[in-house]
Deep mutational scan, measured.
Amino acid sequence: MEVRTIKVFTTVDNINLHTQVVDMSMTYGQQFGPTYLDGADVTKIKPHNSHEGKTFYVLPNDDTLRVEAFEYYHTTDPSFLGRYMSALNHTKKWKYPQVNGLTSIKWADNNCYLATALLTLQQIELKFNPPALQDAYYRARAGEAANFCALILAYCNKTVGELGDVRETMSYLFQHANLDSCKRVLNVVCKTCGQQQTTLKGVEAVMYMGTLSYEQFKKGVQIPCTCGKQATKYLVQQESPFVMMSAPPAQYELKHGTFTCASEYTGNYQCGHYKHITSKETLYCIDGALLTKSSEYKGPITDVFYKENSYTTTIK
């Protein structure tokens, strides 16, 4: 009895394709271990004539594949690729409408935090270190965002349907971005203890939790000093293409032309909904596939993004 075979390709990165001759009487799992086709788990399936010449994702289970996976995804987590594939199996079914010149995501599976993050990423200057993220990001900007969303979920250790947080998501993504040249110098002034300067680099240099107003941050924000008295913390120097200011959701007025974009969060910790506000020729609110415009805006804002380049204080 002759062994019926077909020729397929296996890959971990969709760049390096490895030619395989597979036995049609055995499952993919018996031949390769966990195997995925377009995100779908085909591990328990036997090869079919229609699979001839198709590319299958496999887990990096030998040295060659491990090197290829690390170079593309910059992670050695053995569960990463499987999590990416199972997320992709959902995100490829989502709709990605162009809204006001940006790629958004039609609401499904509690994905409003991903839509808000995706919209924000198209408006701030950011370059990702893992080629996987950078490639998928370019495709997302062009309207094909399924891979990018699935990668975000995998890097953030999230599953489809789980509630997510924009600030946490951005923080994970910033860790995989090139923020080497970003720098922030802060000064804390206390009447009792004097003053202390701190220099922050990388992710810490672009994120701040405690106030939404970048102007206020430049002037000074009140913080408790270690001595128990009130101290003032203010920005001395900022070198970065953008800054992200966050605070627990509270009524906040966004003035046209003073910011790049913002995240609105309605609801409580267990259950809520994100919308995205962007400042173009007027203010726009993007909620999944829905767009509304207004000249002014007041609502429960939790993150505001500002364009920056270089700032030095005039406070002496």
Results as ranks from 00 to 15, higher is better:
residue 3 V to W: 10
residue 7 K to Q: 13
residue 8 V to C: 13
residue 12 V to A: 09
residue 13 D to R: 08
residue 17 L to K: 08
residue 17 L to Y: 15
residue 18 H to N: 00
residue 19 T to R: 11
residue 20 Q to G: 09
residue 21 V to H: 13
residue 21 V to L: 13
residue 22 V to P: 09
residue 23 D to S: 13
residue 34 P to K: 13
residue 46 K to N: 13
residue 46 K to Y: 12
residue 47 P to S: 05
residue 49 N to M: 13
residue 50 S to R: 11
residue 50 S to I: 13
residue 53 G to I: 05
residue 56 F to C: 11
residue 57 Y to P: 04
residue 58 V to H: 07
residue 59 L to N: 13
residue 60 P to T: 05
residue 60 P to A: 11
residue 61 N to T: 13
residue 62 D to S: 14
residue 64 T to G: 13
residue 76 T to P: 12
residue 77 D to F: 03
residue 79 S to T: 12
residue 83 R to I: 06
residue 98 Q to D: 06
residue 98 Q to L: 13
residue 99 V to I: 14
residue 99 V to Q: 07
residue 100 N to G: 15
residue 106 K to A: 14
residue 109 D to Y: 02
residue 111 N to P: 00
residue 113 Y to S: 05
residue 113 Y to A: 05
residue 115 A to S: 08
residue 120 T to S: 10
residue 124 I to F: 05
residue 126 L to R: 01
residue 127 K to C: 09
residue 130 P to E: 10
residue 130 P to Q: 08
residue 130 P to N: 04
residue 133 L to A: 05
residue 136 A to I: 01
residue 137 Y to T: 00
residue 137 Y to E: 07
residue 138 Y to G: 13
residue 141 R to E: 13
residue 142 A to M: 14
residue 147 N to T: 13
residue 147 N to F: 04
residue 150 A to D: 01
residue 150 A to E: 00
residue 152 I to E: 02
residue 154 A to E: 04
residue 158 K to W: 01
residue 160 V to E: 05
residue 165 D to K: 08
residue 169 T to V: 15
residue 169 T to L: 08
residue 170 M to Q: 03
residue 173 L to R: 04
residue 175 Q to F: 03
residue 178 N to F: 05
residue 182 C to S: 09
residue 191 K to E: 15
residue 195 Q to R: 07
residue 196 Q to T: 11
residue 197 Q to H: 07
residue 199 T to W: 03
residue 201 K to R: 15
residue 204 E to W: 03
residue 205 A to K: 05
residue 208 Y to G: 09
residue 211 T to N: 08
residue 221 V to R: 01
residue 223 I to E: 08
residue 224 P to K: 14
residue 225 C to A: 05
residue 228 G to C: 02
residue 232 T to S: 06
residue 233 K to S: 11
residue 247 A to C: 08
residue 250 A to S: 13
residue 256 H to V: 13
residue 257 G to Q: 06
residue 259 F to A: 01
residue 270 Q to E: 15
residue 273 H to I: 07
residue 275 K to R: 15
residue 276 H to D: 01
residue 276 H to V: 04
residue 283 L to Y: 04
residue 285 C to T: 11
residue 286 I to N: 00
residue 286 I to V: 07
residue 289 A to R: 06
residue 298 K to R: 11
residue 311 Y to I: 10
residue 316 K to Q: 15
